[in-house]
Design a binder for these strands. Structure first.
Length: 300
DNA sequence: CCGCGGGCCTGAGAGC
DNA sequence: TGCTCTCAGGCCCGCG
């Protein structure tokens, strides 16, 4: 499901049609996703003008008039699709096999839980088969203390993400590098795919203790700098590719992302390492109950 | 502090 | 064809 690049791509797609428009009405087909919708969800959104969209970690934030923010998380299988005259396809991108211009796929269409009807006739559909997604409404004064947002770590694409910041984050951490990269309280937005990919690019073993990188010596700083750069690169490249489409994820116009074709280790167990002259084979192990893919020949 | 296991859900794919 | 099992871009909790 969606990690930072997919959420960023979705946010940009929604922004194009939602910013400046007004929510005429909301259709809500069930009382909950992962958690119950907040009280008065439909009523509080109806008639509100959309001021702008933002992303924080894997959350999409929709700023509304009246100091209200709509917070949305896609869970594992959530997808937004723009239905109506504003739907546009980006040239050169692959389209969902089941989506010949309009349909989001039969299996997904039966799981449309929320529709935001915008004035002017455009609908924003939210479908989520597994219902691990989440929506909430937050008053402006509660934004910084909201339980979902308050404890999030820094943005990996923010200006401050560098070797210094990673060194601070890793300091004293006896957990594995992979576990630390996945911890949203330490760094926000990285998920299973991009943690694996970033570590491979930085030639670091996912099982290595995080604190073992953050030595004060020159060599240590070089390593964390390399990792910070790898994180930044892989996320940026994935956003440019419209995200990674494995099972559920599509962009808001139904197009598939195509960064999955650029994976070097994720879901490549048994295949040769993509690094030049490495000669290793990609392995799959389990860490914290999640699959980790890496090359033990070049990742140390 | 840390990893593990289980849970929340549905669907796809593999193997029999 | 259909059953059973495993696994999946997330995240939370409790246990030891």
């Amino acid at each position: 499901m969606p990690e930072l690049p997919e959420v960023e791509t979705v946010k940009r797609g929604l922004e194009q049609v939602m910013a400046g428009r007004t929510i005429a009405k909301v259709t809500q087909n069930r009382p909950d996703l992962r958690f119950p919708f907040p009280d008065g969800f439909r009523r509080r959104l109806a008639g509100k003008k959309i001021l702008g969209l933002n992303r924080r970690a894997k959350y999409v934030l929709v700023g509304l008039e009246g100091d209200l923010t709509l917070l949305m998380h896609l869970g594992m299988s959530g997808r937004f699709e723009i239905i109506g005259r504003d739907r546009s396809s980006s040239p050169g991108k692959f389209h969902h096999p089941a989506g010949s211009g309009q349909s989001a796929g039969k299996a997904v269409q039966s799981h449309v839980h929320v529709i935001f009807h915008l004035t002017g006739g455009t609908d924003i559909q939210y479908a989520d088969p597994r219902r691990f997604g989440y929506m909430d409404l937050i008053e402006a004064q509660d934004l910084e203390t909201h339980a979902r947002l308050a404890d999030l770590g820094p943005e990996p694409l923010g200006n401050h993400m560098n070797g210094r910041l990673l060194t601070d984050i890793f300091k004293g951490k006896q957990r594995s590098l992979k576990a630390v990269l996945l911890d949203q309280k330490l760094i926000a937005g990285i998920g299973n795919i991009y943690a694996c990919e970033a570590l491979h690019r930085a030639r670091l073993s996912p099982t290595r203790r995080a604190a073992s990188l953050s030595t004060g010596r020159k060599k240590g700083l070089e390593r964390v700098d390399t990792l910070a750069g790898a994180i930044r690169d892989v996320l940026s490249e994935a956003i440019a590719a419209g995200g990674s489409s494995l099972r559920d994820y599509v962009q808001t116009d139904g197009a598939l992302g195509y960064f999955q074709h650029a994976f070097r280790v994720y879901d490549r167990e048994g295949q040769p390492c993509a690094r030049d002259k490495c000669g290793g084979t990609v392995k799959r192990i389990v860490q914290n109950n999640r699959s980790t893919f890496f090359c033990s020949s070049c990742q140390k």
